[in-house]
Design a binder for these strands. Structure first.
Lengths: 228, 228
DNA sequence: AACGTAAGGATCGTTCAACAATTCGACAAG
DNA sequence: CTTGTCGAATTGTTGAACGATCCTTACGTT
């Protein structure tokens, strides 16, 4: 390996260098707490309380709030504070509109082997978890499956968008009574979809996926009551 | 009109209420300046100088920086400051990947009449401007055309994404020598594309669009030199 | 000529304290 | 039941301060 190649390889790690301001780490913590439901949708996050608990200044905390606000995880209302976002039914509809576009275009494209491998691994993990009745893990594996599916597009920006979108979907699940029952039936569907993609029957895969998403959306909207 | 209907109607304006913190207005100003090239790509934005010029505190300005950073207009480097983003060639490639997905799925969908009307209006404006040799206006009309095209998807989130994407593309144009020459040949192509969409020949439109974007991407990458 | 070190200045990161602006709830008056 | 009014609580914004980090320059070493 030549020197030029070595430095080219190293330069991939460049982004990891700058990554650590207090505000961003605070945002990481909050993002995780929100995603796991510790801060449920609708909950107000007090600047004073949280800045005190995390031992950071209010200013730094506010920077973190801005970051999460842009990811649609927090809702910033002027002079009232920030709230964990409570998605409306329209939001759910739009999330699925975007999913149809992103995942649809993903399955229509000839998949790269590496990306496809990730999809298969998520698939396997979901099946293992289902066999063990670990529905928590089935849920996260299902999410990984679709994240990997979208990555077939080969676009970092689309990957990033999908990450945000799925984080937002998690908010929706936190509002529902029984998110577990929601993930179960889709393990089988994932397998079928993956089979179609692998065998190169792309249009069939796209059609199947559309049906898949229609179904999921209907279930979700029906069970979803963002009113209190 | 009953009272209930009145208040329901009014509640549409709700979002407009909260929208005006100093940080956001500062972000608006900076966004405009960047978009018009006043702050060229690569330029460093000094916290002290700008906060002084705009008469806001450094803390408030930093909040604005965070906002624009998330829109990929600014590049925030730890302990070094914020810079107007200078897109790489890889960025250009990815921007066109996303365009292919968003615009492709837009033309495949049966268009709503209202959305289509906006596309046609942008088209007409571009033609008028071209007739008057006003290439500045041709450029913005061209951008409006594609923004409207994407809005055929009917998704607010996708509209928002496209807005950001086009803002990023504007950065690319600011780096090039002669952005004008770049917009000219596409007026004709826009017309053909619009014709195909209007007559419902969606697959043909999608194919034409793919070719369109391939061509534009090639031109752009070839002319683009983000080195100095 | 290439490299290691050191010093100084500039700028950012973060904190803190203070005050103005706004919201909210309670309570009194009509 | 609706409409003012008041006060407490919280956010919005500011300005100053100090440590941390980076950049530049200079100087000496190899």
């Amino acid at each position: 390996m030549k020197v030029d190649d070595l430095v080219a390889d190293l330069s991939q790690d460049r982004p990891r260098l700058g990554r650590s301001s207090t505000a961003e780490r605070v945002a990481d913590i909050l993002r995780e707490r929100i995603s796991e439901g510790f801060f449920p949708p609708g909950r107000r996050l007090s600047e004073e309380a949280i800045s005190e608990a995390l031992r950071v200044s209010r200013n730094t905390l506010r920077e973190a709030f801005r970051l999460l606000g842009h990811e649609r995880l927090l809702d910033h209302q002027l002079n009232r504070g920030v709230f964990v976002r409570l998605p409306s039914v329209e939001d759910v509809l739009d999330l699925y509109r975007v999913r149809r576009v992103l995942e649809g275009s993903a399955v229509r494209r000839p998949p790269s082997p590496e990306a496809l491998a990730l999809v298969k691994e998520a698939m396997r993990d979901a099946e293992r978890a289902a066999a063990e009745d670990d529905w928590q893990r089935v849920g996260t594996a299902n999410i990984r499956f679709h994240q990997a599916l979208v990555s077939l597009n080969g676009s970092p920006r689309i990957d990033e968008l999908m990450r945000q979108l799925l984080a937002e979907l998690r908010l929706v699940f936190h509002v529902m009574d029984n998110p577990r029952a929601f993930h179960e039936p889709f393990v089988e569907r994932n397998r079928v979809l993956l089979g179609l993609v692998e065998s190169g029957r792309r249009e069939e895969a796209a059609a199947y996926l559309d049906d898949y998403l229609d179904h999921a959306e209907k279930l979700l909207v029906h069970a979803y009551e963002p009113n209190r």
